[in-house]
Design a binder for these strands. Structure first.
Length: 271
DNA sequence: ACTGGCTCCTGAGGGC
DNA sequence: TGCCCTCAGGAGCCAG
């Protein structure tokens, strides 16, 4: 699944293609996604215009006329693409938004993605309301990060991936940020000195920015909106490199589990 | 207030 | 070739 840099890359590519277009129809082929696609959507959307496309964490927010919005999350395997209205549907394409010149389609084999609607301020939506600050924006201050994490018993990697603490950091970038910070992923938050937490704060932002510059990473399912893969993979230092030598010290990268997620780290560099 | 475990689903890849 | 097992980038929910 796409993490923040991938979702932001999609947003940037998609925004100019859909902004200003009027929705002609929503076709739903599979309404059983992470949450059921609301039955009212197909009636409510036609005639509304897309005003803009925003991102919050890993959520995309399509702003519509009439003070409404569409909320899209890609889950683990969701992919958006633009297609001609007559292009045949692929397997696992669950819905399409027909616009004036193109159709926006979602393909998602695992169906962990979601399509919901709301009105008023998107920030008040139940799924967005509890999200922590955006890691690349000013609200994610050093003070906030340290005060939120310094008393916690949970593994620092789990905390970094907790959207309520900071929005949009997933498994790949948590692994990478921890390696660059020299911090063991399973170290409890409260057993980290301030200086080390500060380093992690900075490295999290650095890694996300670098990935963004590369157009995101590509594992199995993520593609940019034009179907081409992201370029960041080549810069992974630990993710997916279990058993390979650490690029910093040569020791073999270990793979363990933190929570239910795969964790990669260098036992020498990360303590 | 936190923590850890479970859950939704399909597909890919490894071992035999 | 085929079968079975494990694992996958998310994250809300629940019990303890």
């Amino acid at each position: 699944m796409p993490e923040l840099p991938e979702v932001e890359t999609i947003r940037r590519a998609l925004a100019p293609q859909v902004a200003g277009q009027t929705i002609l129809a929503l076709d739903v082929l599979q309404l059983h996604l992470r949450f059921p696609v609301p039955q009212t959507l197909a009636q409510d959307l036609p005639g509304r215009k897309i005003l803009g496309l925003e991102r919050r964490g890993k959520y995309l927010v399509f702003r519509l006329t009439g003070d409404r919005y569409l909320l899209v999350h890609l889950g683990m395997s969701g992919r958006l693409r633009l297609a001609g209205p007559e292009t045949p549907l692929l397997a696992h394409e669950h819905w399409q938004l027909r616009l004036e010149t193109v159709a926006l389609r979602l393909r998602d084999p695992r169906r962990f993605s979601l399509l919901l609607e709301g009105s008023g301020s998107p920030g008040a939506h139940p799924l967005l309301r509890r999200l922590g600050p955006e890691p690349l924006e000013a609200q994610f201050t050093e003070t906030y990060w340290i005060e939120t994490v310094r008393h916690r018993k949970a593994a620092i990697k789990t905390l970094l991936m907790d959207g309520r603490i900071v929005a949009g950091v997933g498994n790949i970038y948590a692994n990478e940020a921890l390696h660059r910070s020299g911090i063991h992923p399973n170290r409890p938050g409260r057993r980290l000195a301030k200086a080390r937490l500060l380093r992690l704060h900075a490295m999290t932002r650095t890694v996300l920015l670098e990935a963004l510059d590369s157009g995101g990473s590509t594992l199995r399912d993520y593609r940019k909106i034009d179907g081409t893969p992201g370029e960041f993979n080549s810069v992974f230092r630990v993710y997916g490199r279990g058993g390979a030598p650490c690029l910093a010290c040569g020791h073999l990268i270990r793979q363990i589990r933190t929570g239910q997620r795969s964790t990669f780290y260098c036992p020498v560099c990360q303590t």
